[in-house]
Each structure stands twice: as C-alpha cells, then as structure tokens.
C-alpha cells in the first residue's frame, strides 16, 4: 500500500490549537475519522462529484431520520450523519457499486485492513510531508 496520508498527525495539531479557537481554523473534530470523513467529502465536492446542496440535502435527511434530543458525543453523531449522506449520495450516483463499500467497512472493522493504509510508519514518519520522491515506485 503506497497511499498514505498524515491526517492523523494534522488532527493532533488541530486539537492542540483548539485551545486558541480564534486563531486557528477552529476545527472541532473529536477523532481523526471525523476529519477524514470531512476532508473526503469536501474533496469530492471540489473535484466535481456533486453540487454542495446535493450533499446538504442528504445530510439533512440523515439528521432528520435519526435526531435525538441529546448532545452527548455531538461531533460523533454529526459525522456519522455526514458519512451516511456521502455513502448514500455516492451509491445513488453509481460511484459506489453493490456491497463493495460495505465489504471494505467490514474488513476495516475486523482488522483485515488496518490504518497502516493511512498512517505513515514510525520509521519514515519524518519524511512524509515534503519528500515524496523516494516513495514512488514506477
């Protein structure tokens, strides 16, 4: 697996910055997967997979169908809706086909796949941001 991302590291930084919300971007993620879900969806939008209001409509649907008058784990609940909205929209668009995505979710749940797909290993943790050259196999 050659695709890596340093999202998890970014989140660690972000959470430190939350002590100064007025200075930074004020991102209020509670866990790396929430940032991952956020960034994936915004990237899909930027790459033209959908109009923003198409995603918005799905998000409203997801929230409506599950609303509870409870704000425990507000971020987790919110980004679960966010995932649901993205999955549903991509499925309707035919980007996600059949049970391909569900199978993959199960593989991550069972540990068959793991976060090493994303997290840069300790041995080259310091090379991931600006020196990609030697990581590429042609």
């Amino acid at each position: 697996m050659t695709d890596t991302t340093d999202l998890d590291g970014i989140i660690a930084d972000l959470r430190e910055r939350e002590a100064f919300p007025e200075r930074g971007g004020d991102l209020s993620f509670d866990a790396p997967w929430q940032a991952r879900a956020f960034a994936t969806v915004v990237t899909l939008y930027r790459q033209g997979f959908f109009e923003w209001n198409e995603f918005q409509a799905r998000l409203i649907e997801a929230i409506k169908s599950a609303e509870q008058a409870d704000d425990t784990d507000a971020e987790e609940v919110y980004y679960r809706h966010w995932l649901e909205a993205a999955e549903d929209l991509l499925s309707d668009q035919g980007v996600v086909v059949g049970d391909e995505l569900e199978r993959r979710v199960r593989e991550f749940e069972s540990g068959e796949r793991d976060a090493s797909e994303f997290v840069v290993g300790v041995d080259h943790a310091h090379t991931h941001t600006h020196s990609h050259d030697h990581d590429h196999n042609h």
Binding site: W33, D88, S91, R113, E117
Partner: peptide, 26 residues
C-alpha cells in the same frame, strides 16, 4: 443504505477514503 448505519464510523471513514483512492477517483 450502501453501508449499515450502525457500522463503526472509523471503519466507515477509512473504507470510504481508501475506496475512492484505490479507484483513482481522489
């Protein structure tokens, strides 16, 4: 829904991202 709502959200987020990357969509 393409993915059950009660699935672990961390697995869902990872699956979605890795799926799109492997398909070379993102």
């Amino acid at each position: 829904h393409p993915v059950p709502r009660d699935a672990d959200p961390q697995a869902r987020a990872r699956a979605l991202q890795s799926y799109l990357i492997e398909k070379e969509l993102l």
